[in-house]
């Protein structure tokens, strides 16, 4: 399952940072996830809740998810449009000479610790 592997990645990263910063406990972690990453937030949260219970520093650590909308830019006419609705073809000029501006991010934004 995809989300589980992703959760392991995030936990590894934040645990490493926690050690570097002399942290006793991680209360919450905030992720920024683009809408075309293929990550399903509900599944991610389920995996998260299971996985954090196995890590002493992270018992009951809350997961916050901030969505980043997917926007595509058209090189032909300069239009920026919603990727989820129109995909790779520009709704303004029908060109497929387009590229994704944002929406495939998967970032650890911050963590609340003590």
């Amino acid at each position: 399952m995809h989300e589980l592997g992703v959760v392991f990645h995030v936990i590894d990263e934040v645990e490493e940072l926690a050690k570097q910063n002399d942290v006793k406990h991680i209360n919450s972690v905030t992720l920024q996830i683009g809408t075309v990453t293929g990550i399903v937030p509900d599944y991610l949260t389920d995996c998260w809740n299971w996985a954090v219970s196995k890590h002493e520093l992270m018992i009951d650590c809350k997961l916050n998810i901030e969505k980043i909308e997917a926007i595509t830019h058209c090189s032909a006419c300069g239009n920026d449009y919603n990727t989820i609705i129109y995909g790779k073809t520009c709704p303004n000029c029908q060109s497929s000479d387009t590229y994704l501006l944002q929406g495939n991010e998967f970032m650890i934004k911050e963590m609340e610790v003590y």
Binding site: V6, H9, V10, E13, V14, L17, N21, V23, L31, E105, F106, M107, I108, K109, E110, M111, E112, V113, Y114
Partner: peptide, 9 residues
Amino acid sequence: RIIEVKQSV
């Protein structure tokens, strides 16, 4: 405290 991470997974 809040630690800003801003790191791609």
